[in-house]
Design a protein around this nucleic acid. Sequence first.
DNA 1: CGATCCGTTGAGGTGCGTCAACGGGAGTGG
DNA 2: CCACTCCCGTTGACGCACCTCAACGGATCG
Lengths: 200, 200
Amino acid sequence: MVRTITATHGETIIGEGDAAESLFNVVTGWVKIYKLLPDGRRQITGFLSPGDFLGLAVNDTYAYSAEAVTDTQLCRFPRKRLESFVDDYPHLEKKLLSIASNELIQAQDQMLLLGRKTAKERIASFLLNLSGRAENTDQPASPVSVPMTRSDIADFLGLTTETVSRTFSSLKKEGHIRILDGHMIALEDPDRLHELAEGD
Amino acid sequence: MVRTITATHGETIIGEGDAAESLFNVVTGWVKIYKLLPDGRRQITGFLSPGDFLGLAVNDTYAYSAEAVTDTQLCRFPRKRLESFVDDYPHLEKKLLSIASNELIQAQDQMLLLGRKTAKERIASFLLNLSGRAENTDQPASPVSVPMTRSDIADFLGLTTETVSRTFSSLKKEGHIRILDGHMIALEDPDRLHELAEGD
DNA sequence: CGATCCGTTGAGGTGCGTCAACGGGAGTGG
DNA sequence: CCACTCCCGTTGACGCACCTCAACGGATCG
């Protein structure tokens, strides 16, 4: 019933509008999911890391595209078989509902970020988010690995690459973060960063 | 098990951080759900109309507040009793999961709007959204009733009241909408409005 | 009939976008 | 192994879409 598939950096995993035949679980690596406007503007609605599900929010066809940020392994569950399997184990349904609930809560946080936070608050929130996810998988809270490009970060936070870059520089100059290389970032004072993320 | 409750215009129904003891279903009227930043900035993450559920995205405590936009009637389901009830009727769990899925899809659309659309595109999207919801409940697609204030609309779309007002005026001047009174709006050309909403 | 809220419009300011230039690293092909 | 190219990240100069501040008229309500 389950098959492991791999996707390399930049490879498309699912496309918006495709028939939603599978549910995936990320095993290793990072995946981004995004929506496009006709003129090419892009909004990344989430980054998935190991343990996250891809393809829950669905309705016959996928409402978004997904692409590998890093080389990635995923478990693929054919949706039809999964459904009959879930019928036999009702507690799984409950588990899926709880996962969807958590995704909804995260989505609402992201709406608050996109609708009402400044660039600096967005970047601080983003770094804390990554840091928290690292902790949840028994990795250090700092330094955090930031595998996505500035352009991905910009499209996730509703900014441009230039603003993302400038804001990183400004946080660095103010001593809130240290950039080890472009993709490893140390959080110097998480509590202060948390205040920054909420505008205090 | 079920009790009907009422809330009048402006009344708080649930508060962010409260113990999540109930699930609600809107019977009549409109409800807004929102999150606040410490300094008072507000993001409305959704408007609920009859048939919508309140309190699905939850995790012991509510992650958002909810307030009645108009006078409202809701069905209240105590969460504990509901859970055991749902255990006995597994297809309900499936129904709830499908509802949560749809909310996730809507949330992703809203992220695209908040992160990447212009003020005009946001207003056009908003009006079409209201119009579509009206149609789904056997009401005319135009004119649509817009029961919320400009300030609510602004906090939903990540704008200010002034920008909302100016954008309505501009859409009116260009002949895309007709404002019957402040809260009834006729969509003159839904197809054109749909193009506007996506930046064509 | 004052007080308050809501919606609208104008004038001016600003945070972030746009456009441009440049350096460094990774991949590629000869 | 070395050019060559492309992509990524950074920084600067400038512009603009939207925010801020302000004023005002109308509706609602005690």
